[in-house]
């Protein structure tokens, strides 16, 4: 009986310990990435290549997602508020929600699926085919060559993608306001610009940058830890999409809270 309880707690302790080690390793990778950024050599061409691949490559889905979000939100807010005669508040409500929450959050979740899984699969496949070992054996650092360009490319691209998503979302909202609720574009835009303050916009940008960091560091970490061939690559990508999505949602709450306290 005592043995059974002891072994149960021991197993629990081992699981907890492995989780703590993983968390430590993730932070270690993050700090090494920052350290490699500020020491030579810095691969600028690889950064530009990744910005093109990760950032520019995600613009079309971001536009579709942004417009759709703007359309749907405006439609729902419009008919919901119409019951109380509050249709005129729709532009303010939609723009504020998009700037602070919806644009950065939805864009990040979308990018976590598209880019996070891509990074994890690419690095994971490189790892199981010994290409990461080859990078090390040739006297170079996998963090410097693989992680740093991807990290900074997404930290730069995701806030820009969020801004794009916000912009097209506002445009979508404007179309619905005009066609469904007879709110003229001039009034709509006036309400948007007078409602969304600089700090609302900044809140969205900071969130996007933090989410970008979460996506790339976790994707690269898991990619570099991938084992067991193609099966391992599949498990890695699934883990990255699920974990980054959850972490983005949880982190979003805390960043929102911090921004509400600050401003």
């Amino acid at each position: 009986m005592i043995n059974h309880i002891t072994s149960k707690y021991y197993r629990l302790f081992k699981i907890l310990r492995s989780y703590l080690i993983s968390i430590g390793e993730v932070f270690d990778l993050f700090f090494e990435t920052i350290q490699c950024t500020f020491s030579r050599p810095f691969y600028f061409s690889r950064l530009m290549e990744q910005i093109n691949h990760i950032g520019y490559g995600s613009t079309s889905i971001t536009v579709v997602m942004g417009v759709t979000t703007g359309l749907v939100m405006t439609l729902n807010f419009g008919y919901g508020l119409a019951k109380f005669g509050g249709t005129l508040y729709v532009p303010a409500l939609v723009s504020l929600s998009l700037a602070r929450e919806m644009a950065p959050l939805f864009t990040s979740l979308l990018v976590a699926g598209r880019v996070g899984s891509g990074i994890a699969a690419e690095i994971g496949a490189m790892n199981v085919t010994q290409q990461v070992d080859a990078i090390r054996a040739l006297g170079t650092s996998p963090v410097r060559t693989l992680v740093v360009p991807r990290f900074w490319s997404l930290v730069i691209s995701l806030p820009l993608l969020s801004s794009l998503s916000f912009g097209v979302g506002i445009l979508g909202g404007m179309i619905v306001c005009k066609t469904e609720f007879d709110i003229i574009p001039g009034f709509y835009l006036y309400k948007v610009f007078s409602t969304v303050k600089f700090h609302d916009y900044m809140s969205g940008l900071v969130k996007s940058a933090v989410f970008a960091g979460i996506i790339t560091i976790l994707a690269c970490y898991k990619g570099l830890k991938t084992r067991d061939g193609t099966k391992g690559v599949g498990l890695t990508t699934t883990w990255v999409v699920v974990t980054t999505s959850i972490l983005i949602l949880v982190t979003d709450f805390f960043i929102s809270k911090i921004f509400l306290i600050i401003w």
Binding site: M126, T129, Q130, Q131, D133, A134, A137
Partner: peptide, 9 residues
């Protein structure tokens, strides 16, 4: 080190 698989990029 010359890898068994070549380990080419």
């Amino acid at each position: 080190y010359s890898f068994q698989s070549g380990a080419l990029f």
